[in-house]
Design a protein around this nucleic acid. Structure first.
Lengths: 231, 231
DNA sequence: GCAAAAGTGTTCGGGCTACACCCATGA
DNA sequence: TCATGGGTGTAGCCCGAACACTTTTGC
């Protein structure tokens, strides 16, 4: 085995990825949790996850798991921490590389979701999770909050076209905090990255609210110039 | 083996930690690099690192490596990314959990440093590194820059007592950017977290500059109240 | 006395906050 | 016509950026 040539005296470990999958339902920020049907941890709530295969990177493994659970292959994924405590899994020593994903819930395949015993749960009132998955989820939320301030990742949770009130509700759900709608609008407008469409969404109100698109390419040009996004 | 009870069908991998050790010499931000004396990668520049032992977490492993290379055991350490590309190490598949460390160079044991063929190299002009270590170091620098804006981690690179010009030079080295000294002083003073000592440091100038200490406990109180640190 | 670094204030503009009313529409 | 959410402007304050001269002292 060439694998052993230099390093054979060292121990090898199981390495898994765990995915903290965020979705936004219009009011709450949700997280996809699995009701575990097998041991260890049978009957408990857990994060979707799986072992890394020999031919794939951790990013590929988490994409695979994302696709298995939602049917979506083009997903915003961010690796944020690796959990290595010796006793974190009672079944064996497992090192777990954690990713959080932002998905547009309306694109996810509900049949696949239920097939995996997966449910959307509000992040504001999460149940107790198996092993250290509670800490894994908490840290994901911290990282999401940190990142969403400086990078336009919120849009990954919204449909391509969305209204300003929807966007505001999303940020309110992420930060668990109300914003003044006039100031919020001003800040968004000031970014200069929104394309207003001449179409209204009437699902949220009688009057209807204008739809907007986020101009990703314009953002990239600004980002390359070193101009910061801030929300 | 209980290790195999649930998971025996899965592959196990070597898991290492790599440490990006930052130090500040008064002018430049430095990084500790090893001139490798063994294969794979013999003769190339590499990050200090090592394999995780069965009885230790990744954090413990990186502390161990830090201590081996510098003699210091109380070190600011931050895990920031895990590198998992299948072919990242030509010798075998190795998953590497990367940490960056901030140390006070004056506390490090130079004999230990040279014993490991380690050298301090300016981050502004790094040599080519072995395997993906260049990318690992780059990402560490990105993370350091991100974090140093919002958390008082710069002080980990300075002696306990330092002057304002020293502090300014440190931030200039981190961000590769000059600051106006009047504005810098104001910003620092405005934090209200510096204790001015009635002692001057005369090593940097004839006139001498007053020494200060960072008031960690005061910072913690503010941080717990949710008051942000910003620099 | 001069070189070299330390130390100090003011002005201006932009962005953040706080705040209240009219608009459009479906029921 | 009324209830519901969409949409708009202004005033005050604070903060960050720009900018130049005096002080101290070792040589």
């Amino acid at each position: 085995m060439s694998q052993s040539l230099f390093y054979s005296q060292y121990t090898r470990y199981y390495v898994a990825v765990d995915c903290v999958i965020f979705g936004f339902n219009g009011d709450d920020l949700d997280l996809m949790l699995i009701k575990r049907s097998f041991n260890p941890g049978k009957g408990e709530w857990a994060l979707p996850g799986g072992f890394i295969e020999p031919n794939e990177s951790a990013a590929q493994a988490s994409k695979r798991i994302l696709k298995e659970h939602t049917g979506i292959s083009d997903v915003y994924l961010e690796q944020y921490y690796t959990f290595t405590d010796v006793d974190r899994d009672p079944g064996a020593r497992i090192i777990s590389i954690a990713y959080y994903a932002l998905i547009k819930v309306e694109e996810s395949n509900n049949e696949l979701v239920s097939l995996h015993n997966a449910y959307w749960k509000k992040v504001s009132v999460l149940p107790k999770l198996m092993f250290d998955h509670g800490a894994i989820a908490e840290k994901a939320l911290d990282q999401l909050r940190l990142k969403a301030k400086h990078q336009p990742i919120g849009f990954e949770l919204l449909p391509e076209c969305f209204t300003i009130p929807q966007l505001q509700k999303l940020y309110e759900a992420i930060y668990q905090k109300k914003y003044d709608k006039r100031n919020f609008r001003k800040k968004i407008a000031h970014l200069g990255l929104m394309e207003k469409l001449n179409v209204k969404d009437k699902t949220g109100s009688k009057r209807g609210a204008f739809l907007y698109k986020f101009n990703k390419s314009k953002y990239k040009i600004l980002a390359d110039k070193g101009i910061a996004f801030e929300i």
